[in-house]
Design a protein around this nucleic acid. Sequence first.
DNA 1: TCCTAGTATATTGTATACAAGAAGGCAAGC
DNA 2: GCTTGCCTTCTTGTATACAATATACTAGGA
Lengths: 224, 224
Amino acid sequence: MKPGNGSRGALGREHPSLSQRVAEELRRSILTNRRRPGDRLIEDRLSQELGVSRIPIREALRVLAGEGLVAVQPRRGASVADISPEVARDLVEVRATLEGLNARLAARHHDPAIVQELKRVLKDGNRAARSKNADDLVRLNGEFHDKLAEAGGNSILFDIMRTLRERTNLVFAANTARRAEQDWDEHSKILAAVIDGDEDLASMLATRHVHRAAEAAFGAAAKT
Amino acid sequence: MKPGNGSRGALGREHPSLSQRVAEELRRSILTNRRRPGDRLIEDRLSQELGVSRIPIREALRVLAGEGLVAVQPRRGASVADISPEVARDLVEVRATLEGLNARLAARHHDPAIVQELKRVLKDGNRAARSKNADDLVRLNGEFHDKLAEAGGNSILFDIMRTLRERTNLVFAANTARRAEQDWDEHSKILAAVIDGDEDLASMLATRHVHRAAEAAFGAAAKT
DNA sequence: TCCTAGTATATTGTATACAAGAAGGCAAGC
DNA sequence: GCTTGCCTTCTTGTATACAATATACTAGGA
């Protein structure tokens, strides 16, 4: 659960390597749907696009493969992960359980500093939900879940949930604007339970939150 | 949840790349404690030892870092992950929860073919527990949990549990022989609940199994 | 003796180059 | 017309070489 490279320009310059920057760039482009599931990721082409040699590209692809965002077939190359409905269901099942565990832990510890930040994100999120600003909603949604994961205080859980969240978002993204108001209503209730220290309630609400978002997305997907 | 490369010599030769073989070799050496936590993994040295260039080594190290078996510090190189007591606790918490979820799913589906295999492993395990053969115990323990994970039928869960198991084993390994009889008694009860289709019981037993093994290990570690 | 600066050495990061394997197209045969 | 085999081309896998950075060591001064 390192602080992340948000603290740019700090004393220890902490130079990200090219591989890391390439990985970040590719991750971004996948999560924002600029590269679509199934798109091939040809090393030489990426190498030219990003102006670096193939080596950093390869390493970045390996990292993203580990996160499940990219699928690499030996000797056939990499492509953006295409998440089947079955795998999506599996993701949801696991994520729902772990969000539940995390909310329980957050309720148990409830670190005041992080709770404060969560309150702020909640306020911003509610505003964005009313004005239906899609970009803000995606960002704030990510921020809320990220800080909640931090509040849980379990580093392993934090890492796993990040990759699960990225992948479920890839599937649900289209719906995050439509369901915004209900989403943030649920966020609010989860946070309240965490603040109350009501472990059981927090856990149940967080688990249900994931399942409901998934149902909404699958329902919408079925319609299209 | 692919069948793995156990099916060697099959028609599609399925050539593992050098990187993959290096990763496998390193993983082995770490899990069998031939390389100890904290040991530096210097690319050039590994390159000479294994007779390949540094490129496959680097890629293997990245993969293992993704699995949490190796820690890489940018520009300082890789070393075998040294799992702190705090992280160990975090690992146990998450793994206990997920083993519970998995056992629940296994009880829900209970695939007869896999149950059959589990019964066989159980029998072998009990025999090994009585004769206290450490190597066999480690192997069979891994096999039991692996097949149980397969029985859950959730591919995401399967992958996550594998990496969690590897890391917790790294911490508990020393104790797996001492606690063998109780371990296999608990395995037996978990499997019985799965066969009965008793989801709640299976889940509870699997969760408790992890916690108990952890307590035993921590207790033993405190003594030494 | 202890601290500091400077230098040498060890090690990782990246680029280029070549080898090997997979995919697709074209021609020859049935 | 359809299939089969070869060949071209595209792409990945690996090696070597060099550049950049971190660590260890030595010498000089307070």
